[in-house]
Each structure stands twice: as structure tokens, then as C-alpha cells.
Amino acid sequence: MTTSTTDRVSPRVRGGARPPGGPTPVPSARRRRIRWQPAWLFMAPSLLILGVFVLYPILRTLYYSFFDWSVGAAVQPFVGFGNYIKLFQDPSFWNALGVTLEFTVVSVVLLIVLGLLTALALQSEGLASRITRSVFFFPTIVSLATIGLVWKFLLDPDIGLVGGVTKALGLAPVAWLQSAQLALPTLIFVSVWRSVGFAMILFVAALQGVPGERYEAGRLDGAGRFSLFWYITLPGIRPTMLFATMMLTIQSLQVFDLVYVMTGGGPLYRTDTLVNLIYRDGFVNFETGYAAAISWVLFALIMLISLLQLRIFRYNDVD
């Protein structure tokens, strides 16, 4: 690497002033000018790939959203904000937005609560705990398509295990995925079932990271179990809470595979999420421009919610 010589630390610079309160021990601001080149070289492969295959395409999509764009059509008329106006008048968009938000809010809350509870139950390093944690975590690494397929069969009222057991218990089997009321809660259940191990692992690590002295100090002050949890555990795992909430929210807002495999958006659009709607408009109905507009609304929504979450958790660690 030829650049390396330019990066050698000269004593003069090392002794240079640090920006006041600068938290990082990495060298000072003064050296920025001579420093930027190697950084770009290091980042080049990743940035190139992300730029060409993610950022540029998403801008292309923005461009499409101002046209009545359709793959291969002879004319792609410019419609300005037409697609966006159409979207706000389209009941299927509002339906999909509602479904997506309901799915996201309920599953994220359940995942955080159950993930934390499970982590509290299994935080010890004993063998039983460790094995159980592995078992809980396993569904996370299985593809959603496989999980959707298996649960779809399991929940089938006539031939699935769940239906079979309900009948063996003398109850009427329930059509989980065919019922307009139950389909979305069922999808949420499967999604929570899959990801609870992920949340649990995050929280176990966070719980183990809370310094034991704090608890000792708390106990000396006469704090009970609940106070310890409320005043020491929860603040101690706040960064993890933020991370878990953000990751799970982003994932949930993008939910598609499960819907696609298990319900296809039905019955009566009760599980028609935004990405499923994008998929349908873009690939089934060939309204690429319109699908692009929905995509951008979803993208904006994800950004907005992520920023809000950063705000709520008062996360000011962006150095």
C-alpha cells in the first residue's frame, strides 16, 4: 500500500490540540486534510457496490414514481406528482398502511417484551440455559419461506397438526389463515415465534453487560427486585433496547415473505402489507411507476420512524 507513508504520525501532529470534549481517541481534526485518501480506498468496494446496486436503483425508483412507468411500454408519460396524489386517494394503500403499522406495532412490542422476559429467565450461563437459548434462537436462522410453508401446513384446520390436536381435544378446528379476523394476528404470532430468540439473545448480552456493582449498590440502598429492574437494569440495557426496537421495526415494516407464502395478502386484503402491495402493483399489475411511489412513501416512513425512535430513546451517541 503506497499510501501508508503519508499516514505516518508525525510527533508534531500527535501533540496537536484535540477538539474540546472530543470523545474519540482517534487522532485530531487537524490531520483531516492528509487523511481522507486511504479512507476512501478502504471504503471503495463497499460504497461502489452499495451505490450501484442500492442507492442508484432507489433513485431510479424515485424517477419512475413521477411517470406512469411500466416495464417495456412504448410511452412512459410524465405525471408529476400524479402517482402520489392517486396513492392518497387509494383505499388499498390506506388499508396496506394500516395492516403494516398494526403488524409492526404489535409484533415489535411483543418481541421486546417476550424477548426481555425470556432473556431474564435464561440469562445464567448454566448448561440448561445455554441449550435452551440455542433452541429459542434456531428459528431465526431458518428462511421465512420455509417457516411460512411449515406453519401454513401446521395451521391447516383439516390436515395440520394444530387442527388435528384441536379436534382431538374435542374442539372445532379454527381456520386461522382463512378468517378475516384471525389471519393478521396469526401472521404476527408466526413472526414473533421466529424472532423472539433474536431479541432474547440481544437482551441476554445486554443484561450480562450491566455491571454487578450497580446492583450491589442498589441492594445496599434497600432497593427491591422491581426497583433494581426499573432503575438499574432498564437504563443499563437502553442502547440494546434502541437497537432491537429499530432493527425489528425496520424488519417488520418490510414484511413480505411470510405474507407471500402464508396468505398472499388475503383474506379480503386483511394481511396486505405495503411491500406486498408494492409487489402486486409492480409485478402483477405492471404499474411500476405507481409501485415506485408507494416504495418511496414506505422508505420515508421507515426513515421517519427510525428517527423518532432515536429521539425517543434520546440516543446522542452519533460521534
Binding site: 391447516d156 384446520p157 383439516d158 390436515i159 381456520a175 382463512q178 378468517s179 398472499g264 388475503g266 383474506p267
Partner: peptide, 18 residues
Amino acid sequence: SPVGLTGAEADSLFSAGK
């Protein structure tokens, strides 16, 4: 008939003798 069947589900019921 059950409500909301997909084609494959209806076929399954028939081949199950149900």
C-alpha cells in the same frame, strides 16, 4: 365448503377424502 380456500388447499381436502 370452508371459506377462503386457495386452489391447492381445496385440492388437498379432496385428496384427503374430506
